[in-house]
Design a protein around this nucleic acid. Structure first.
Lengths: 340, 340
DNA sequence: GTGAAAGCGCTAACAT
DNA sequence: ATGTTAGCGCTTTCAC
């Protein structure tokens, strides 16, 4: 006789496993959570029942009963950005190894959407939450503070933050590039960037760059793309830039994809890099080592952010973390190659 | 008097909302699920109670009670790959708009890991599951068939599949590129590729390419990278390739990042593209339009895959989908630019 | 070490 | 249209 199929739900319950193993459901539960507190004999019976029935625990029931949910929400602007997706991947691996399931959401650089996602994720009663950066709506702040969920803000550093922080200073990145360029005697500069509205961190890097260049008596022309880094527009804007400001001897870019666009535009115009104009990026994307010429850039700790965020969050679930340890500045590294 | 804090769980329950709104819990439940079946008066009371208390429904409790879980699992090889992440983003938006939460997992191109993830996701009793491609372990097949969860395999086409399929033929992509090159009279070719073990779809494209070139009496030299597309290795292998096979007049690449590496290597060696050697990619990544020269490539329907996968899955949850409509070949488009 | 019993917060009949 | 009741499948005291 075939078993009746329940409406789309899981077939085998813990009770059925218990019956087959000839123990009580609570013993099965105990076996699943703390195997060594069950006698070897029963453990074996239970495991073989589980295998025979193909039993899979029902996470929802478990979560409800224990009122703890092995779920962690992660909100990034977009998974489409390789910076965030690499961090995400590392974060996922570490958190999954610790038994947590990630709930990932794309805020699309929009605080209202972020708020919606926070609300939706809090409905899952998550053990923790990871957000990108410091920009959140008032309502989001309210939601989070009344929920008492541990929160890590990642990929940025330098503001108080909601709870825990793992990242680095983008202002410092801009400064680093500026200092490198200034040391070469380049004072007439430009900053070509993705739109600040889509990328506050690019804006912070710009500020760091501009402040440093201007403090040294140099100039900075800002050229903002209309949206995300689009190679075609990057080329066009770079062309306009160099025509309007032929004195420019260095171009800092908000990221490596923008720098790639600038590089190709210079090639098209026959401008020698770095002789005529230096070019620097941000991100140290894979291809930057083999462009012609190789690109000077900044290496952000994308995987380290994932690792440390996972660890900090996990630690905060088991023990009290004190003030200092709650905020991590991971720093960055300037990668000097030939383009600047 | 401050409310007692429950151990890390959600504070406000539906019961408390009901009490404040002076209705029964089930009326609150009804209001939340089908608002217009509740009288306007009570609806208002309930909503204001919800607002005052900051009530968020407990998804776990709801899911358990209804034994339907507005959860859909998605397994991709890696979110780090822009093809998958763009599909993922579109998929996420559409599915979330329909009220579903995505559970995303990285298989890391490993069937054993995929199996583990399938198991872990089935524990959530998902409404549906989205996998990438056709390669799954026997155990995964078993798990899925006994669970009766609707499954979409995406990003590929041309095999029976487990249930539903949304993608395109990678073999056809290889053929398309080959035909284009052959039409230009180029018969001595090479295929530079990421490692097949990490990318079966690249292998399929290679097969389509090779079969077509050889059928026309041409030759194909295969050059496989050791892992994922790494620009430095790509350059080195391309150098070796052109030295060992100076007769080569066209290089097809398994994707645009590889093609970029080839492009720069040719620049470094002073080989004119396409005069001396033609170069073609796959993916139509953003930068390909503005390389020097612009890259001939193939546009895969990355967003369309997300859209159609979401729709097919959603549809299959409400009505029976018949045979033909369960398998979608979305096709691809050859984008001819100057490099080939 | 094991089992019985009481929920976790919600949904879904069913009654009214 | 609203309330009553009985679970959903598991975890967690608490006896034994």
């Amino acid at each position: 006789m075939a078993k009746r199929q329940r409406r789309g739900s899981q077939r085998v319950t813990m009770g059925e496993v218990a019956r087959l193993a000839d123990v009580s459901p609570s013993t099965v539960s105990l076996y699943l959570r703390r195997p060594d507190e069950v006698s070897a004999h029963r453990a074996e019976q239970i495991q073989s029942a589980i295998d025979r029935l193909g039993y899979l625990p029902n996470v929802m029931a478990g979560g409800l009963a224990s009122s703890r949910s092995r779920v962690i929400g992660v909100l990034v602007p977009t998974v489409t950005n390789s910076f965030f997706s690499e961090t995400l991947e590392t974060l996922e691996r570490h958190l999954r190894d610790a038994g947590y399931q990630l709930l990932i959401g794309n805020t699309e650089f929009d605080e209202a959407r972020e708020e919606e996602l926070v609300r939706s994720i809090l409905s899952w009663n998550p053990a923790g939450l990871v957000l990108t950066g410091f920009g959140h709506s008032r309502k989001t702040h309210a939601l989070l503070s009344q929920s008492a969920t541990p929160v890590v803000e990642m990929w940025d550093y330098g503001q108080p933050g909601l709870d825990m922080v793992v990242g680095f200073s983008h202002h410092a990145c801009g400064r680093l590039i500026a200092e490198h360029l200034l040391a070469q005697g380049r004072r007439r500069t430009a900053f070509v960037s993705t739109h600040f509205q889509r990328d506050v961190r690019a804006q912070n890097r710009y500020h760091g760059f501009r402040d440093t260049v201007e403090a040294a008596g140099g100039t900075v022309v800002l050229q903002q793309l209309s949206g995300r880094s689009h190679a075609e527009e990057t080329g066009r804007l770079t062309g306009e830039l160099l025509e309007a400001h032929p004195e420019i001897e260095a171009i800092a870019c908000s990221n490596d994809m923008v720098a790639l666009g600038v590089l190709f535009e210079c090639q098209r115009q026959g401008l020698a890099i770095p002789a005529r104009v230096a070019v620097a990026g941000f991100g140290n994307l894979d291809f930057t080592a083999s462009t012609v010429p190789p690109l000077t850039t900044i290496e952000p700790p994308r995987h380290e952010i994932g690792r440390r965020t996972a660890r900090l969050l996990l630690d905060s679930l088991t023990r009290r973390i004190d003030g200092d340890a709650r905020r991590l500045d991971l720093g960055v590294r300037l990668v000097v190659r030939e383009s600047a």
